[in-house]
């Protein structure tokens, strides 16, 4: 069982990069993340979605799907496309590796996803598409003593 779940589907227009990360941030906000944790999630989503637009569909129109789940204090995101797929996943993960240097890509996308999220899994099949599964645990913050709910359970935590 999940504590919350959502699905999002949109076309591969670059203006949807902002839409996607802002929507996921709103979904994540129930976990009460810090500003930094929220920035991490937004950046990782932006990287994955941009990759679908530039690399998977290469500027052609295609569908990008995001599945979001919250399980206890972990957010799980699945970002998928049905584009061209990744030839060499191991190479793709390497910092500065890009197949589109001509488009001013830096090859830092996967490196950023990996350092901002706890886990990043890449499932890709050439010609069929790519699915990125990312997880991040949101740390519990100190509960405010004056919180009513907290007081009503006698402050036991």
């Amino acid at each position: 069982m999940f504590d919350n779940e959502m699905k999002l589907e949109f076309i591969s227009k670059s203006s949807n990069e902002a839409f996607a990360r802002i929507t996921v941030a709103a979904f994540a906000s129930s976990l009460d993340p810090t500003i930094e944790e929220l920035a991490d999630i937004k950046t990782a989503v932006s990287e994955a979605v941009t990759n679908c637009i530039i690399h998977a569909y290469e500027g052609e129109e295609g569908i990008i799907k995001i599945k979001g789940r919250i399980i206890k204090n972990t957010i799980e995101l699945e970002i998928s496309d049905t584009g061209r797929g990744i030839e060499n996943v191991e190479m793709a993960r390497k910092p500065l590796y890009t197949t589109k240097a001509n488009l001013e890509r830096s090859g830092m996308g996967f490196t950023i996803m990996e350092s901002f999220m706890d886990e990043v899994e890449i499932d890709s099949v050439l010609g069929l598409g790519t699915k990125i599964i990312m997880k991040k645990k949101i740390k519990k913050h100190l509960v405010n003593i004056e919180d009513e709910e907290f007081a009503s359970i006698g402050g036991v935590g």
Binding site: R21, T43, E47, T50, L103, E104, R105, G109
Partner: peptide, 13 residues
């Protein structure tokens, strides 16, 4: 307030 890896490419360019 926000920058992803696209900013790196833009700056290097």
């Amino acid at each position: 307030t926000f920058m992803d890896s696209a900013g790196i490419g833009m700056i290097i360019g």
